[in-house]
Design a protein around this nucleic acid. Structure first.
Length: 822
RNA sequence: GCCCGGGUAGGCAAACUGGCAAAGCCAGCGCGCUUAAAACGCGCUGCUCGCAAGAGCACUGCGGGUUCGAGUCCCGCCCCGGGUACCA
């Protein structure tokens, strides 16, 4: 007795994986062919640590579905893979275990590579890269030198965020709520000389060009807020006693006459000098020191009452010559604006609180049209019809006119000008850590700071024995490496021992994929023209600010150097939601709710795991994992497989049979409906879950129509296999081959037959006063009059009429009729 | 506080443009196949009446509104998740 055919992914999947590997099916060349359209589909490259987790499976299953869909709709698809291989976890592991970060990283990369194959992701492996390879970071260093040449990479002494656990500085973007993004330690401030990239030069372009790209609105909003552009004016206040000018930035120049005091940040370099010799000198020192020990959380607490100390000095308001007292207070931040503010308590909540605490005058200068100064909510945002009061020659102007007039006056008097301020800070890129890209700079005793010439690249990471960070880079211990010759004068020089932030490595990898094996240059600009920009980028929303902003900055800077000619790296972005644990919480080992993908792949197959993860819910939303659900998708794939097996024994074509009737017609219609549905779900809206549901419906329909002709069933089954291919490529290929003998990935994506999408009749919905009271079949395309007649005749409607007056009949052609009574 | 998401059967979800609320999957129940179970196939699964065809009612976090018609639009609120925060 022979076993009935059974769906066996463990047999089918390796079979196709081997074929794709043997034939290099997913590799594309850089040679353009006439009339072929390119598509660059890219998922964010993984950081290789341990083995891939469930989020990776979702990310790459999603990207792969898009890559396959693009290929089969006539585009030449670049779909590469690489590894973001430098970084702290491997280094921290090295400190703990003594295993070289390279070794741990390579082991992990091998695991990722294995699983990407095992999952059947259609990757062009000929372009594989890892950012820790000298053949890659050589060009990271080259880009650093290019930025240095243009003055976009520079060193400066600054108060920087320091992570005491990781013993390294952090970029602003890597500090979350005052804590290290990586390890969660409280971040400290330190005065250090560090390397920066001048991303602030690009603030306007980074902001304005967001309008040109197809990104989710919330991601654009996050970037806009992070860049934080505000328009206003710089106003110069003069401290007469010391003869020093202090500029401030304000978004409300119209309230200038309402400034009743002046506040400096505790970090402002002039604070001690101002207080020197005044009665407040000691108190100021105590206050500033106390603030310095405050955590950023404590300081940022909005509930905390305002504190501060007078400086014993005054400044003059340029517009009315009024002398107002100076204070130092921790609610003013050194990092934004000029580190000093004019305080307008009548129109600013914080200044108001401070004025109340210190008994300072509050003078309204903007009032509603009616004229009277409002009582207490005067600091609320101003509206259209407000006018200036108590403002000398400017009184009576509306707020907008007043703003312009005051700026103009300041300009004329040389006491200020229109100005724009940003929250964005320059990107701090140096790290005092081992496992990163060395910075190609030396310090010569004679020449000072000297960039290495291009032919000295790569500067390879030296081997060290001790990775333990001690406040300086572990590279500093590699004496043989550190001591070198100056490329300019040949004299004694020392290498830069800091390494680069790993976000530098990942800010250009998508460029390298285009020309990954080029060892003459980072890339050939002609090849970049072929592939860039990335047509569809896919990744987690957690990179909305960091990676996605840095990469945009790199591309703009490189474009300015004429090294490439796009302005934006990622034309379209899709941010996938997280997979949560079965309990609905974020997966974490401490909660014990971590699901690993690979046992599932081994149990149910890669196709089931991939399809299920996309079927869980809308791909851009978070979704909780449930183990039972996989079984359902596995069953669906098995049902499709059994149809393929059963029908492969029957002869005949798998094309749409002509003039289908009865059950055949229903089946052919359903197949065409599914083609249409899956196509629009994939092309227009990344609705993988509903696309998969449509294929399930088609398969259910084939089972229900066992009475249909073999030709119709073969057609419907081959269609289902073709449509399921982007999600379950192995099964799709298998079933399609069983029925047609052909390779599904070489087939053009099916097109729905328009004649089979439109039926001759439809179900007309009958409503009375908006409530459904019946349904009748009506001919498609029937006139309004005819539909109205059908509705009024229907007994469901007649029953409601009951002698009541018909007020109105609303007809929606091919859909419904609503009869309005009384 | 501010800015985004989200709240629909027992669970996950669908309804894209204001037009039949709940497609599909899970779980549950029943039937068939089977000596039996699993697997597989078919059906049911908001409430009430009915053997049934069917009929009636309710319903998209809460309260209002606009509309012939609201899950969808507007106003006010509640809950959950994320981002951000003395940014002058």
């Amino acid at each position: 007795m022979s076993e009935p055919p059974r769906y066996r992914p463990e047999v089918i999947e390796p079979k196709w994986q081997e074929l794709w590997a043997r034939e290099h099916t997913w590799e594309v060349s850089n040679d353009a062919q006439a009339g072929d359209e390119k598509s660059y589909v890219l998922e964010m490259l993984p950081y290789p640590s341990g083995e891939p987790h469930i989020g990776h499976l979702k990310n790459y299953a999603l990207g792969d579905a898009i890559a396959h869909f693009h290929r089969r709709t006539g585009r030449r698809v670049l779909h590469p893979m690489g590894y973001d291989a430098f970084g702290l976890p491997a280094e921290n592991n090295a400190i703990k275990t003594g295993v070289h970060p390279r070794e741990a990283t390579e082991r992990s990369i091998a695991s990722y590579r294995h699983w990407f194959h095992r999952w059947g992701i259609s990757i062009d492996w000929s372009r594989e890269l890892a950012t820790d390879q000298p053949s890659y970071y050589r060009w990271t260093q080259w880009i650093f030198l290019k930025l240095f040449e243009r003055g976009l990479a520079y060193r400066k002494q600054a108060a920087v965020k320091w992570c005491p656990t990781d013993q390294t500085v952090l970029a602003n973007e890597q500090v979350i709520d005052g804590h290290c993004e990586r390890c969660g330690s409280k971040v400290e401030l330190r005065q250090l000389e560090q390397w920066f990239f001048r991303i602030t030069d690009y603030a306007d372009r980074l902001l304005d060009d967001l309008d040109q790209i197809e990104w989710p609105e919330h991601v654009k909003t996050m970037q806009r807020n992070w860049i934080g552009r505000s328009y206003g004016a710089e106003v110069i206040f003069r401290c007469e006693e010391l003869g020093i000018d202090y500029p401030v930035f304000t978004t409300r120049p119209d309230t200038l006459c309402g400034a009743t005091f002046f506040v400096m940040a505790p970090e402002h370099p002039d604070v001690f000098r101002l207080a020197a010799g005044t009665e407040y000198e000691r108190e100021v020192h105590e206050y500033v020191n106390a603030v310095a020990t405050e955590s950023s959380e404590q300081r940022g607490d909005l509930e905390k009452p305002k504190t501060g100390v007078p400086l014993g000095r005054s400044v003059t308001n340029p517009i009315n010559g009024e002398r107002i007292p100076m204070f130092v207070a921790d609610y003013v931040l050194m990092e934004y604006g000029t580190g000093a503010i004019m305080a307008v308590p009548a129109h600013d909540q914080r200044d108001f609180e401070f004025a109340q605490a210190f008994g300072l005058p509050i003078r309204p200068v903007v009032a509603p049209q009616s004229g009277e100064a409002p009582e207490d909510q005067a600091f609320l945002p101003h509206s259209e019809n407000e006018r200036l009061i108590n403002s000398g020659q400017f009184s009576g102007m509306n707020a907008a006119e007043g703003t312009d007039a005051i700026i103009e006056w300041l300009d004329r008097e040389g006491r200020g000008h229109a100005s724009v301020s940003y929250k964005l800070r320059d990107w701090l890129v140096s790290r005092q850590r081992y496992w990163g890209c060395p910075i190609p700079i030396v310090y010569c005793e004679g020449c000072g700071m000297v960039p290495l010439p291009e032919d000295a690249l790569p500067v390879e990471l030296p081997e060290v024995n001790d990775y333990q960070p001690k406040g300086r880079s572990p590279l500093a211990t590699a004496e043989d490496w550190v001591n070198t010759r100056c490329p300019k004068c040949g004299g004694r020089a020392r290498r830069e021992t800091d390494t680069m932030d790993t976000f530098v490595d990942s800010s250009w990898y998508f460029l390298r994929y285009c020309d990954a094996r080029n060892d003459e240059a980072a890339w050939d600009p002609a090849v970049l023209r072929r592939w860039m920009p990335v047509d569809q980028y896919i990744g987690g929303v957690e990179h909305a600010i960091l990676h996605l902003m840095y990469a945009r900055f790199f591309v703009k800077a490189l474009a300015d150097m004429e090294l490439l000619d796009v302005q934006e790296p990622f034309a379209a972005l899709f941010t996938q939601g997280m997979i949560l644990g079965p309990d609905g919480n974020k997966m974490s080992s401490s909660k014990g709710n971590v699901i690993m993908p690979n046992p599932i792949v081994e149990r149910s197959g890669a196709d089931a795991a991939r399809t299920y993860i996309l079927f869980l819910g809308p791909a851009d939303q978070d979704a909780a994992w449930s183990d039972e659900g996989v079984g359902g998708v596995h069953r669906f794939l098995a049902r499709l497989y059994r149809l393929g097996e059963e029908l492969s024994g029957q002869q005949g074509p798998a094309e749409q049979p002509p003039a289908a009737q009865g059950p055949d017609e229903a089946l052919v219609r359903k197949a065409n409906w599914a083609i249409d549905k899956v196509t629009s779900d994939l092309a227009d809206r990344f609705a993988f879950n509903t696309a998969i549901a449509a294929i399930m419906e088609l398969v259910n329909e084939i089972y229900r129509h066992a009475d249909a002709s073999p030709a119709a069933r073969r057609f419907a089954t081959a269609t289902a296999a073709s449509l399921v291919f982007p999600f379950a490529p192995h099964l799709g290929a298998e079933v399609y081959e069983l029925l047609t003998g052909r390779r599904v990935w070489e087939e053009v994506w099916p097109a729905a037959d328009p004649a089979m999408l439109q039926a001759d009749t439809f179900e007309l919905v009958l409503q009375v006063n908006g409530k459904v009271r019946g349904r009748v079949r009506a001919p498609t395309g029937a006139s309004r009059e005819e539909l109205e007649r059908l509705a009024l005749e229907a007994h469901g409607v007649q029953a409601q009429l009951d002698g009541r007056q018909v007020v109105k009949v609303v007809v929606v052609p091919d859909k419904l009729v609503n009869v309005v009574l009384q």
